[in-house]
Amino acid sequence: MPNWIRTYVRLIDAINYRVGRFAMYLLFVLMGVMLYASISRAAFTPPIWTDEMGQFLLLGYFMLGGAYSLQLDSAVRMDLFYSRWSDRTRAIVDAVTILALIFYLVVLLYGGIESTAYAIEYGEKRRGLWQPYMWPIKLVMCIGITLMILQSISIFFKDLARARGKELS
């Protein structure tokens, strides 16, 4: 494998590891916001921003955490045949099929960019009383999807290496 591929894989894995570790702890921020919402609802008037903030956090959590979850290899596979193949066969099949996965993510990103552009152009706000702007969360989502694509390409290189009987990591 050429050096630039090694560098790419190392770099992307490292970036996504860090972003993912950050996203992982957003869980506690989400807990904090929801807890604050419930306490204030019981004690005084409900704050107007907690619901939307919670929704933004959840989306951020799984969009930014997506690439790291790929690293953790948590995505489910149907392994009726897969589990019986040799490591080499798996790598070859994976290297082909991951292109389809990347295609899906690219289409997703394309839609995300369009939607974000719309949100910026028209100053789109979320419905409700708080009415926060939508472009920041849409931007975060686009970043998350981009990181997923970069991670998938890294996985593609690793599959390719494995298919040739080598390890890349």
Partner: peptide
């Protein structure tokens, strides 16, 4: 006063003048 009411944003903005707490769900 203090009633938590599900309503449209515009109506909510107006009704809050009478103590209604508009809730979005």
């Amino acid at each position: 006063q203090g009633k938590r009411i599900f309503t449209f944003p515009t109506a909510g903005r107006f009704l809050s003048k009478f103590g209604v707490v508009p809730v979005t769900l």
